[in-house]
Amino acid sequence: MNVPLLQTSGLTIRFGGVTAVDQVDFTLEEAELRCLIGPNGAGKSTFFKLLTGQLRPTEGHVHLRGRDISGARPHEIARQGVGIKTQVPNVFNAMTVQDNLWIAARHKHTPAFATDLTDKILTDLRLTQIANKEVGQLAHGQRQWVEIGTVLAGEPELILLDEPAAGMTHEEVERTADLIQEINKSRALVVVEHDMQFIKMIAKTVTVLHQGAVLIEDDVARVLEDARVRDVYLGKGLAA
């Protein structure tokens, strides 16, 4: 029997009375690209935080290639090959674009190799022009790219992207979609996004979260036609 890349079972976290993630069973196969959608407050970012160790689950487990990583610390999970671009950008603001990527690459590699890998990713993401700019002074869309580049420089095997296209121009959104498909040739991704155009560009299978629980998980075309999905996005029906 093949072991999935990522599997959560009964994954739950409560903040006081709020159950932000509720008994989620989620399975991702090797090299899969999954989109995760859901209205504001559905628990998508919290789910990512549970996967990356930024939060500890109240109940349930996370398995990465069969290994239980529930409750492990962020750096331990990162070392197992999970990389994340968070919703609120997490970058090294006072450092240059180049240094941001270098720090990521340096974790696995020698300084010289890290420099080469940094240059390669700068070229791939077309960031060479701004390589020596301080990240704190860049526009939001560019900071998103820097963070994606930083994640890539860490060479993870599973990449989580929380709203990668937010704040980008139409042209940048298309480039991001292309990039995700390019990355997916060799690695698995889970992408959270609100932009349905963007989802249509990249998605095969979509998982919908609603009030912390999985509402539906199916092929993109069927999910977007589903009446329940429309209802939760319009904010009626299921809440009752």
Binding site: R73, H75, N90, F92, A94, D99, H107, G154
Partner: peptide, 16 residues
């Protein structure tokens, strides 16, 4: 310096 700038990011890259 990176940890000073953003501890969360550094941890998410594998640094303790």
């Amino acid at each position: 310096i990176a940890i000073r700038e953003n501890e969360t990011r550094a941890a998410l890259l594998g640094y303790d």
